[in-house]
Design a protein around this nucleic acid. Structure first.
Lengths: 185, 185
DNA sequence: CGCCCGATTGACTTAGATCAACGTCGGTGG
DNA sequence: CCACCGACGTTGATCTAAGTCAATCGGGCG
């Protein structure tokens, strides 16, 4: 699924991770979101896709041809209802990201990012990062260097632990929450 | 309608302009969008509103209590269909804004903003700005000074004309389009 | 073993923010 | 009627957060 291409299908991820992104002619990239198993792709499309989807590692997904899916949707009002709910939720998330991209500092962005990843990890605070530093940077509107430096700072401050680059442990969730919300120092 | 408040109603603007925004505890603001007559408010809500709506000047709107509206929606599948379409469109716009906020320069942002305002003005290119420089800055993730300076630059470059601060004329739509898309200088 | 790719760290640069002064206009009251 | 005031906008000087450029590290793979 590629930005600008006719939106022929909806998809549902069954395994793996997908990066959704848009780009500028000169190569600058903005990751608009990451999709995890269970996520539904294609809602943010009109006649053409608005973003490009790229697999991060191996992915399996379930494809629904657009016309057939729309018929199904009309036959099952509950489904359409559900989709409207999903779309509303995505809009709320999108607005939160505008606040992050438009007004937060690098430190606040990275803290917000870590906390967004936290829920699925429950109490343990152990986070697997399926994406590279480049993906994170393009997601947060920063450079890989700034992401790396900020993570190092959090490590020095004992807010996170990171033995390997793509697996980390939240040590100070409260502190990170304060930083993410920009509540006074 | 205020960020975090229970989402009690949907609204349809019949007159005037509304600013939708989120803010950080220390006062930093991000305008997530402006709404014009005909626009529908409340789609981007779950149980609570995700943004605050503030009137820019006098506004009249049509209020739909949430429960009643949802009943109506279930009775009229065409309406729900329409709303899903609106939500998809909003998502596409939101993604475009993430690209702008995350990756575009000040110059590119202001050019994009001007072009977004252009359509309703047709060929003439005469744009009425209902919002202040502060609103524009908070919309584009910039400061008022940068917005003002960039507009002055465009004026010096004969791309726009601006006799009074809130009314301007597009002189070089092609040039602005090139700038907005970041297509080589 | 050596290569390559991703991540980290350091030195330096810069776009845009901040701080500050000034201009302009519309409203208010003397 | 016009002098004052406050809000909004513009412009200039300076500062800084984050970007760029560059060197180094480290782990997986052929």
């Amino acid at each position: 699924m590629m930005e600008g291409e006719p939106a022929a299908s909806y998809h549902n991820i069954t395994m793996g991770f997908v990066r959704l992104h848009k780009s500028l002619p000169d190569g600058r990239e903005q990751v608009t979101g990451f999709a995890r198993p269970g996520d539904f792709l294609g809602l943010a499309s009109e006649d053409n896709y608005g973003v490009t989807a790229t697999a991060i590692g191996p992915v399996t997904l379930c494809r629904f041809p657009r016309d057939r899916f729309r018929k199904l949707m009309h036959a099952l009002p509950t489904l359409e209802d559900r989709l409207l709910g999903v779309a509303s939720h995505e809009l709320v998330i999108a607005q939160e990201r505008m606040l992050l991209l438009g007004r937060k500092t690098a430190r606040e962005r990275v803290a917000s990012f870590l906390l967004d990843l936290a829920p699925p990890c429950g109490e343990t605070g152990l986070i697997q990062l399926p994406m590279t530093r480049t993906d994170i940077a393009d997601y947060l509107g920063l450079t890989i260097e700034t992401v790396s430096r900020t993570l190092s700072t959090f490590r020095r401050e004992k807010r996170i632990e990171m033995k390997v680059p793509n697996q980390l442990l939240l040590l100070d969730r409260n502190g990170l929450t304060r930083i993410a919300q920009a509540s006074a120092l």
